[in-house]
Structures are given as C-alpha cells and as structure tokens.
Amino acid sequence: MLLIPCPFCGKREETEFHHGGEAHIERPKDPDALSDEAWAEYLFMRTNPKGVFLERWVHLAGCRRWFNMARNTATNEILGSYKIGEKPPKGAR
C-alpha cells in the first residue's frame, strides 16, 4: 500500500486518496474546433508507461484537494507530488 505525500497534509495512507488518471490532460479550449479523432484522443487515449508516470490524485478523506504526483509504475517509487499548476519534480521528464 502506497504512502502518498499530499502537498498540503503530508504523507498519508493510500486509502485516503482516490486516483484520478493521467495528469496534464487539458480540456480543449474550443471543443468544436477539434476533429472527431482529436476529440476522441482527449476523451479516451492515455499513456500507460512502465516507468515514471505523472498522475492525478485527490485527497478525498483529507483536505479534498487535487494534486499531481510522479510515480514509477514499475517500482511504485514516488518521485514527488506537486500542486495543480506547478511543474513536475526534477527527474520526472
């Protein structure tokens, strides 16, 4: 079970969090300008790397804040978590 560093509350057990999928997928500013393929890309397509993955979490049972985290999917090593709008930690891309 992961020990997740909430950028606000500190390290807490994984059971307090909810996983929110891949991070840094921005909602298109003008959806109508997108082709069906491009819209489908935004809706459905996600990378699934073996290695460092930037992902979203929400501290559901704690401060209710969303944040991003860099985690190695092969080892579960956590390179760091960072607030929405901040840059990923060094070493994660």
């Binding site: 921005e26 909602r27 979203r56 929400v58 559901l60 209710r64 804040r65 969303w66 929405i84 709008g85």
Partner: peptide, 13 residues
C-alpha cells in the same frame, strides 16, 4: 461533489 471540485481545482481554478 468530487466532480465539481475536480473541475474547479484542476481545470477552472
């Protein structure tokens, strides 16, 4: 509530 917070915090801060 989670859905509302998700959009407010991550997309429309």
């Amino acid at each position: 509530l989670g859905w509302l917070e998700e959009w407010l915090q991550t997309e429309w801060p």
